[in-house]
């Protein structure tokens, strides 16, 4: 039945080569932890992606309860964590995942750096990778504010002050980020929310797509 369905689609769209290219590519021995235990260092990139998937999923579900408004944000987070079944796990995944993803990315970066894997012809993929790192830090920064608790607001205050101390455009930058010249409030939260949920994830998906495309195109770097 499934085979017939697949054949029906494949006849029309010729999808076999698409996934065959990914499925059949050979993986060399030096990255395979089953052959060399030390090859576990090659897992950090994949684990980073794994946590990103967890983040996207748990984030989508968190939005079923979360309200991005100063008056209600905290209440909704408190409610979804304490009243909703498995709220602790879903929010826990998103909260701890945000930390774990930074750790994994850090380790992945160090692996690529110390193996010199960013050298020609892989310079562009390194740059895209570092951009992913920046986007992740941005996601962490904006996501930190969303529960609207004490640490969220005061940490954001400090961040905005740092932005404000930029020479020349400092005040402008701060107002643009915070949505108000003086207040960290309603408009700051909605801005950070939009950046956290739409702008940065969009950038992240594009960058990750490029990252993977380049890996497939160039293959993995050889053994040291």
């Amino acid at each position: 039945m499934l085979t017939k369905l697949y054949d029906w689609i494949d006849e029309r769209l010729d999808i076999t080569p698409l996934w065959r290219d990914i499925a059949d590519h050979e993986v060399p021995e030096h990255v395979n932890p089953a052959h060399h235990f030390s090859a576990f260092v090659y897992c950090f990139g994949g684990l980073t992606f794994f946590v990103v998937v967890i983040q996207i999923l748990s984030g989508m579900f968190l939005m079923m309860y979360y309200v991005p408004d100063v008056e209600r944000a905290w209440e909704s987070v408190y409610y979804l964590q304490n009243q909703v079944a498995y709220g602790q796990i879903v929010r826990g995944m998103h909260h701890w995942g945000a930390s774990i993803v930074i750790v994994m990315m850090f380790l992945h970066t160090l692996r690529v750096f110390f193996q010199g894997a960013y050298k020609k012809p892989r310079e562009l993929n390194w740059i895209v990778g570092v951009l992913i790192f920046f986007v992740m830090l941005g996601l962490g920064l904006t996501g930190y504010l969303l529960p609207w608790d004490m640490k969220a607001v005061f940490a954001t205050k400090v961040t905005l002050e740092i932005a404000q101390s930029t020479p020349l455009i400092g005040d402008l930058l701060k107002t643009l980020l915070a949505g108000d010249e003086h207040i960290i409030g309603a408009q700051t939260l909605t801005r950070f929310f939009a950046i956290h949920v739409f702008f940065l994830p969009a950038a992240l998906l594009v960058l990750i797509g490029l990252h993977f495309l380049m890996i497939r195109k160039q293959g993995i770097s050889g053994p040291l």
Binding site: I183, G185, A186
Partner: peptide
């Protein structure tokens, strides 16, 4: 009373 976007607090 301070205006914060659509709130006055």
């Amino acid at each position: 009373k301070q205006k914060d976007g659509w709130y006055e607090k």
